[in-house]
Structures are given as C-alpha cells and as structure tokens.
Amino acid sequence: MGATEADDRHVSEEIGFDDQLLVGGALGGVLAGVLMGLLMHYRMGIMEVVGGLYSVESVTAGWIFHLVHAVLFGVFFAIGLQWRPFAKYDFGPLAIALLGLAWGVALWMVAAGVIMPLWLDAMALPAPDLPNWATKSGTGHLVYGATLGVVVAIADRL
C-alpha cells in the first residue's frame, strides 16, 4: 500500500481498488474461514447454527454459508484498508496483521455478538442472549482475524 494509486500496477482502473489486495482478502478469508470453521465444528459443535441462519439446519449448509461469510468479510477487510481515510497510511505487514486481528474482534462483537442472535430470534430459532460474547466464539474470531491479516499483509507485499 506504499505506492500511490497512479504508481501501483495492481490498482484496477475499472474498480479503483488494488485487485491483488482484494484477491488476498478473498484467499485470506477462505483460509481463515476454514481454520475458524474447524473450531466451530469440532470444538463448539455449532456449524449447523450457521446454516440455520438461512433456514437450512445442516452441517454442510453451515460450512457453505460460513465460508461465504468468511470470503465476503475478507474482501470487505481488504476494501476497508483502501478506504480513503485509511489509504493515506502506509500500513506495513505488522500493522495489517494487527488490523486483521482488530477486524476479527469487531466481527465477534457485532456480527456474532449482536446480529446473529437477533437474526436467529427473527427466524424463530433458539437464540443466545444479547450480547453473545462467548469466549469460544471470540477465540474463533481472533483466529479468523489474525489469519486474514497475515494473508492480506503478504498479498500487499507481493
């Protein structure tokens, strides 16, 4: 992210974003999603709950929807790094990795802690109390954010 937009060969003129960073966000999202998903599946036993968000309570659907979320949140992270208020900073690899960790915490507090319980309740499914800041979920989101941040930091330096 150190080069200006005009100097950066990775910035797509069509979309105005660094396409390499977006790919890094997507790939980081997949890898981070798999690692977090393994925790959700084997340590927490809640993968079918993710499918339940879309009225398909199965482990397979949970994995599919979880990975879709992971990729989308990974791409949103990469876009966020390029958002005008942040784009002016030359984030190094450590800063990007730490921002990924912070992104994981934000997702845990907002998406898992507030939106998911509200969504489950709206679907008339068993929902945890608000806010749902369970430690295991927080650990999973830290793994997600840290992994995403490292992959995006690597993509930024290629």
Rank of each mutant, 00 (worst) to 15 (best):
L39V: 13
L107V: 11
F65Q: 02
Q20R: 15
L39S: 09
A134S: 13
A97W: 03
V11K: 06
H141G: 02
P126T: 01
G92S: 08
A102Q: 07
E14N: 12
L31Y: 01
I115M: 14
V143D: 05
T135M: 11
A122R: 12
A78C: 04
A134G: 14
I96T: 12
A153N: 03
V150M: 02
W108T: 04
P117Y: 08
D18G: 10
W119N: 09
G45P: 06
F86L: 15
P85M: 01
P85G: 07
D129L: 10
V150S: 01
S137W: 09
V50A: 10
F77N: 02
A6Y: 04
D19M: 12
I46T: 11
H10E: 10
V143F: 07
G37F: 03
G149K: 02
T60I: 08
M109P: 00
L35T: 04
H66P: 05
A70H: 05
I79H: 02
E48T: 10
E57N: 12
A95P: 02
V75K: 05
L125W: 03
A112L: 14
L53M: 15
R157H: 10
V59G: 00
F17V: 14
D18R: 14
T4Y: 03
I46N: 12
M109N: 01
G74T: 07
L27N: 04
P128R: 09
L31D: 01
E57L: 03
A127G: 07
R84S: 14
P93R: 12
P128M: 06
E57C: 01
A112F: 14
L158S: 12
E5V: 14
A127T: 05
G140I: 05
V75G: 05
A155P: 09
K88Y: 00
A97F: 04
I115R: 02
A70M: 06
S137R: 04
G52N: 06
T139V: 15
L101D: 01
D19G: 11
V49K: 10
F76K: 00
I64N: 01
G74V: 06
L99T: 03
I154S: 00
I115S: 09
I64C: 00
M40Y: 11
A127L: 05
R9V: 14
V152A: 08
V75A: 04
L35S: 06
G100H: 07
T60L: 12
G145W: 01
L120E: 08
S55D: 15
D19E: 14
M44F: 12
P93Q: 11
P128D: 08
V71Y: 07
